[in-house]
């Protein structure tokens, strides 16, 4: 087995545009730890340019096929595309089956399309914990458009709204997706709603149902009104309209000065999340905290002191200024 280059060398190769180096750096980001932070420190100044589009919706709605079609259209407009496709990690075995590339074969020989499959790993669902970092890396690698496909189940789907400029919610007419979407809160985060499989007999009425629900939301004048688009990834219809809707949303963000605001929102949420992670890790690792806990839990078990008392004592111990 050939020797693998170290991080410094990888960063040089990355700067030269070598896909293998970028791919390796993503792995380092996925694995986390100090190396991941080093990579991020080095590339962060090159980020901030990519337009981020999130795709969410139930499994089987045809998100990958839709991304495949969209990528074709965006490539015609000379966008350089990064795609992040997330699939679930099995909570029982830790293994994952990442099959989204199958649907993206049309671009597998195009050097300007970089597809990376991620397993959700420790995350509760939806997206992988390192999604932000991987987006950054693709951004720094020169991809001006990053498409993120979520797993499609669970509450954490909603996290995509904190990572993307435009959120596309993909639904299908079958199996009452519309109702599911409302329950899951997807109606609140979607900028564009896609009713895929438009050749299905119930597609139009399902789209109308979404439209009606959106109307009830009472959107103030001048604010973005979510679009509802009928597509068929299989028949390649409605894709042009979807591109138009996404671009329209982008123009709206830019014209209204929302763009910078979103970037700030994204970064604030990242700093907050990273800080929470770091604090939690430090608390877990702290011997002082562990000792105090062990010592005082007996008293909690016996009912001598309340759980809150212990927490207050711990707070004193770690006191944050």
């Amino acid at each position: 087995m050939a020797e693998r280059p170290g991080i410094e060398r990888l960063l040089e190769l990355f700067a030269e545009g070598k896909v293998a180096a970028a791919a390796r750096l993503i792995t380092i980001l996925e694995n986390g730890g100090e190396d991941a932070e080093r990579v991020l420190d080095s590339v962060f100044h090159k980020t901030g340019d990519a337009y981020r589009i999130g795709f969410t919706g139930p499994p089987g709605a045809g998100k990958s096929s839709l991304l495949n079609r969209l990528t074709g259209r965006f490539r015609e407009k000379d966008h350089r595309i990064g795609i992040i496709a997330v699939d679930p990690t099995s909570p029982f075995t830790g293994g994952a089956f990442l099959g989204d590339r199958i649907r993206m074969q049309a671009h597998s020989e195009d050097p300007e399309v970089f597809v990376r499959s991620l397993a959700s790993r420790g995350s509760l669902g939806g997206i992988s914990n390192c999604t932000d970092e991987v987006i950054d890396l693709m951004d720094a690698f020169g991809k001006d458009m990053v498409l993120i496909e979520t797993v499609g189940v669970g509450q954490s789907e909603l996290e995509i709204a904190e990572k993307a400029h435009t959120v596309v919610v993909v639904l299908v007419p079958e199996s009452g997706d519309g109702i599911q979407a409302m329950k899951a809160g997807l109606m609140e985060i979607g900028d564009v709603f896609v009713m895929n499989k438009a050749d299905h007999e119930d597609a139009e009425s399902a789209a109308r149902e979404i439209q009606d629900t959106l109307r009830l939301k009472d959107i103030p004048a001048g604010e973005w009104e979510p679009r509802v688009i009928l597509t068929s990834a299989r028949e390649d219809t409605g894709i042009g309209e979807l591109v138009e809707a996404i671009e329209e949303h982008r123009r709206y963000l830019e014209a209204g000065g929302h763009f910078a605001g979103i970037r700030r929102k994204i970064l604030r949420s990242r700093v907050r999340n990273a800080l929470m992670d770091r604090m939690e890790r430090r608390l877990r690792q702290s011997a002082g905290v562990r000792d105090l806990l062990e010592q005082r839990m007996e008293s909690v078990y016996k009912g001598e002191i309340s759980p809150y008392k212990v927490v207050r004592e711990l707070e004193e111990l770690v006191s944050i200024q």
Binding site: T89, S90, T93, G94, G95, A96, F97, L98, G99, R101, I102, Q105, S108, S117, A119
Partner: peptide, 13 residues
């Protein structure tokens, strides 16, 4: 089988 053994499988078909 590899997935059940805890690995991440990229399947390209």
């Amino acid at each position: 089988a590899l997935k059940d053994a805890g690995m991440e499988i990229i399947y390209t078909g």
